[in-house]
């Protein structure tokens, strides 16, 4: 697998997992942060730097997976905004 395809599948996995955060703020933050990080590092060409970033991404993926689980264990009330969005859609 080239580092490009690796990055792409990591990106997708990160977004998929981030969407599972039950907490509104954590969910929106994770999605935003992942997108911004990949956008920012799109221009990196140095192979060793890319390797480092991929490792960082994989570690982040594990953190997100664990924290999604922790968040779901206790459940959380939706914030006012989510309720509004639900009602209108």
């Amino acid at each position: 697998m080239t580092s490009r395809t690796k990055a792409l599948s990591l990106y997708k996995a990160l977004l998929r997992e981030s969407r599972k955060f039950s907490n509104y703020n954590f969910r929106t933050y994770a999605l935003r942060r992942v997108k911004d990080a990949f956008r920012e590092n799109k221009v990196v060409t140095d192979q060793s730097k890319i390797g480092e970033l991929l490792i960082f991404g994989e570690e982040s993926l594990k953190i997100i997976q664990r924290q999604v689980t922790v968040g779901q264990l206790y459940g959380d009330l939706p914030v006012v905004l989510e309720k509004k969005i639900e009602q209108t859609s």
Partner: peptide, 22 residues
């Protein structure tokens, strides 16, 4: 209440970042 108010009071205290909790 069955919803949470929006949190706009981060000077009082901040939520724990999930990465910190991890």
């Amino acid at each position: 209440l069955d919803v949470r108010p929006l949190y706009m009071d981060v000077q009082a205290t901040t939520p724990v970042d999930p990465r910190v909790l991890d």
